[in-house]
Amino acid sequence: MADSIRAFGTRRAMLAGCLLFLLFSLSACADQTKGAPYHWQWDISFTSIFQPNGSIINGLWLTIGISIVAQLLGVGLGILAALGRMSRIWPFKIVANFYIWFFRGTPLIVQLTFLFYGLLISKIIDWPIVSIGPFIIAKEVFAGTLILGINEGAYMAEIVRAGILAVDPGQTEASKSLGMRYRQTMSRIVLPQAARVILPPLGNEFNNMIKNTSLLYVLSVFELYTTFESRATNSFHYFEYFVACCFWYLLLTTVWAFVQGWLERRFSRGTMPTADIGGPSLRERMLSFRSPSGGALGGH
């Protein structure tokens, strides 16, 4: 184990070294081009990462909050749409199919513009300003989160459906034969087992979600991307600001990778005998590149 941790550290150091080398060679190239030399202000990157000011922290929290709420909404809608598609009642089927068809078939940025400005300006929907406890949520944030969630639901629907189909039909029969209703069968028996199949692609989806919140730029929501973009535009120090911007996104997606590993372990209850008799710990699996059991997760 100690060996593989050392290997991990070495690899990471090498990677960081390569990146730095690339950055400086790029800047060296830049200095040799014609015209006035570019004045690097690496302190911009440094402070944006190590001493982020209020607006960056706000943007960070906004990105985190929007991602989580939109993803939860997406999972909920995805379950409903998946059940709708698999339903024997044809109106449910049609609604679910139309929903999935539309939201998977048009770009997210089009949906954001169309549903927010389109509905707002034509006065079809007056997007509300919502206050939850001490937070007042601007209508752009509210609508943006809702649209991200609705879009996500269309993708989650197919993932959830695949998960449900992966559960042995004998499980449904056993549940029915005990007198359990459709709802109980789904929520207590089928979906908890489907979760194990759903989680890996769900991890991908949430990773995408974190990044897709940046599209709320078109609604002028000052999440992480918009915050950095506006500063970069004002100062013309795009490179330095966006180095920091990448750092923050990478931090979020990396933390998520760890959370996902934990979730997957939790939902594999009763499927891996090692879960109860002490297999490699989460930490060991995440850090291990070599151990066979950590293979799938070690790739991060």
């Binding site: 499980q171 029969e173 029915k176 034969s177 007198g179 908890p192 087992q193 009763g270 499927t271």
Partner: peptide, 26 residues
């Protein structure tokens, strides 16, 4: 109705060839 069928099944126990125990429960 599904509700009535479920109620009738409460009175009828069934044991399957492949057991069909719920794997996520003890």
């Amino acid at each position: 109705k599904e509700k009535n069928i479920a109620r009738q099944r409460q009175e009828i126990g069934m044991v399957f060839q492949r057991f069909n125990l719920f794997p996520h429960m003890t």
